[in-house]
Simulated scan of single mutants.
Amino acid sequence: MILIIRDRATKAQIDEMLEAHGFYIKLAVDIEHGILAGGGELHADCEAVLLEDGSTQENIWGASWNPLTQEVFYESLINIRPRQNNRSMEILDPA
Results as ranks from 00 to 15, higher is better:
Ala48Asp: 09
Leu18Met: 14
Val29Leu: 08
Ile31Arg: 08
Glu71Ser: 12
Ile31Trp: 05
Phe23Pro: 03
Tyr74Val: 07
Ser64Thr: 14
Leu51Ala: 08
Glu58Gly: 11
Asp45Cys: 05
Glu47Val: 05
Glu58Asn: 15
Gly40Ile: 06
Ile78Pro: 01
Asp30Thr: 10
Asp53Leu: 01
Tyr24Val: 10
Glu58Arg: 13
Asp53Glu: 10
Trp61Ala: 06
Asn59Tyr: 09
Leu77Phe: 12
Leu36His: 02
Pro67Ser: 12
Glu52Pro: 00
Glu16Phe: 02
Ile25Ala: 03
Ala28Trp: 01
Gln70Pro: 05
Leu50Lys: 02
Gly54Glu: 09
Val49Asn: 03
Gly40Asn: 11
Ile35Tyr: 05
Ser64Ala: 14
Ala28Lys: 05
Tyr74Thr: 12
Leu50Met: 05
Asn59Ala: 15
Ile78Asp: 01
Glu47Met: 09
Gly22Cys: 09
Ile60Trp: 00
Gly39Leu: 03
Glu75His: 13
Leu27Val: 08
Trp61Asp: 02
Asp15Met: 10
His21Phe: 13
Trp65Gly: 06
Phe73Val: 15
Ile35Met: 08
Leu77Asp: 13
Asp53Lys: 05
Thr69Asn: 04
Asp45Gln: 14
Phe23Ser: 15
His33Tyr: 07
Ile78Met: 05
Ala28Gln: 04
Asp15Leu: 11
Asn59Asp: 11
Ile35Gln: 07
Ala20Ile: 07
Lys26Leu: 03
Gly39Cys: 04
Ser55Leu: 04
Ile25Ser: 00
Trp65Lys: 08
Tyr24Gly: 03
Asp53Ser: 08
Leu51Phe: 07
Gly39Lys: 00
Glu19Pro: 00
Ile31Glu: 02
Tyr74Cys: 10
Thr69Ile: 07
Glu41Tyr: 14
